[in-house]
Each structure stands twice: as C-alpha cells, then as structure tokens.
C-alpha cells in the first residue's frame, strides 16, 4: 500500500537503502519527523553534500572527496605495492585488519560475464596504464573467494604477467580458531591444496 503525499514519498525513498523494507522505512520516517527533526536536517544536508562532492580517486578509484584519496596522497605508503579489491568497503577492512602499507586499487565489482561486466567496466585500463609505467613491483589480488572473484584475479594476474609485474593471490582456507570438523568440504580441500611448508 502506498501512502500519498510527502510522507508517503519519504517512506518510499527510504526503501532504496539496502535491507530497508516498507515497514522499516515507515519507522525511520516517523522517527525522523517526530523525534529528531534536527538530525533529519543534518542527514539530508550531508547526503546532498556527499553526492555532490564525493567522487572516485584518480589513481585507485576508491571513493573520496579529493582528486587523490588519503591513502594515495600519503607519501609514507609504498606506491609500488598495490592491493586489488572489489569494493571501497574492502579497502577499509583490509586497512584495519592488516599491516599492509601499500596502495589499493578498487574495481567496483568483479568480472561477471552473465551480467555483462567486463574489463572496461572495472577500470582495468587505468590499472594497465599504471603497470605500463613500470613503477609497480607487486600486485596483491584480494578479490572475493567466489568463482567470479577467482576469475577476475586470474585475469588481472595475466595482465600483470604481460608487464612482468609479480602478482600474488591472498590465501584462503581454515579460518583462525576453526575446527576441521566444522569446516565445509570445499574450503577444506582448498586449504589442503594451498598448504605451505613450516
């Protein structure tokens, strides 16, 4: 059921958020209008500003309000080491969880033949240009561990080979604190194939 008027419109527009259905949207709309009008105003202004100002970093394609993102502009980071990830959220996660001190490159997706997403949509020409300058020493392929993520990693690995840049794939297998009994057979067989010497 669609309600009419501005309130109805607000509820419907809130539904564009991931995980928000009509019921949640309704609750949000009433909360903003009844209890936190100031907060709502700030939210609206910030959203408008963000849409207007936040674009993609010229070098790594992550989201930023400047021409270069903080990481690319940071001179203490090694720009010969590039970690390739699928989304800007992955940049945050990798940066928080690891000691990685290089730069990133964000694909904004993965090669997905069935959705018609190819190398051009992922900005791989930009990456190729960077590889062609010869300043990059190693690529770390941190795409997701799905068939499409693997296929994307393979493809970027082939490009790296063309420019004689070393490429490595992040390891996947038994999770920390994981007991073998409870691990699915696919992951376990992968972990066995990727075992390393100690």
């Amino acid at each position: 059921m669609h309600k009419k008027g501005l309130l109805g419109q607000l509820i419907q527009n809130l539904c564009c958020l991931p995980g928000v259905g009509p019921k949640t949207a309704q609750r949000m709309a009433f909360y903003l209008l009844q209890r936190d009008r100031n907060g709502a105003k700030n939210l609206a202004e910030t959203v408008l500003q963000a849409i207007d100002k936040i674009g993609r970093c010229q070098q790594c394609r992550t989201l930023t309000e400047h021409a270069l993102c903080e990481i690319c502009a940071d001179s203490s980071r090694d720009d010969f080491l590039i970690c390739i990830v699928e989304s800007p959220a992955d940049v945050w996660i990798v940066d928080q969880a690891t000691q990685f001190k290089g730069c990133y490159f964000v694909l904004h997706g993965r090669l997905s033949p069935l959705d018609g997403i190819g190398p051009d949509e992922l900005g791989l020409d930009l990456l190729e240009q960077r590889l062609a300058t010869g300043s990059v020493k190693e690529l770390i392929l941190a795409t997701n561990s799905t068939v499409e993520g693997e296929a994307t990693a393979y493809f970027i690995g082939e490009i790296a080979k063309k420019y004689q840049v070393q490429a490595s794939r992040i390891a996947h297998g038994v999770p920390m604190g994981g007991e073998l009994e409870f691990i699915d057979s696919g992951t376990l067989s992968h972990a066995f194939k990727g075992r390393k010497e100690i």
Binding site: L111, S112, P113, L114, D115, G116, I117, G118, P119, D120, L124, E128, F155, E158, I159, K162
Partner: peptide, 14 residues
C-alpha cells in the same frame, strides 16, 4: 549474449 561480449573484451586485453 552478454558473456560473449565480455569474453571478447578479455581476449583483447590479454
């Protein structure tokens, strides 16, 4: 066929 377009793009890049 979407996949065919993507495969062509990929072959061009390699």
């Amino acid at each position: 066929l979407k996949s065919r377009g993507v495969i062509n793009q990929i072959i061009q890049h390699l």
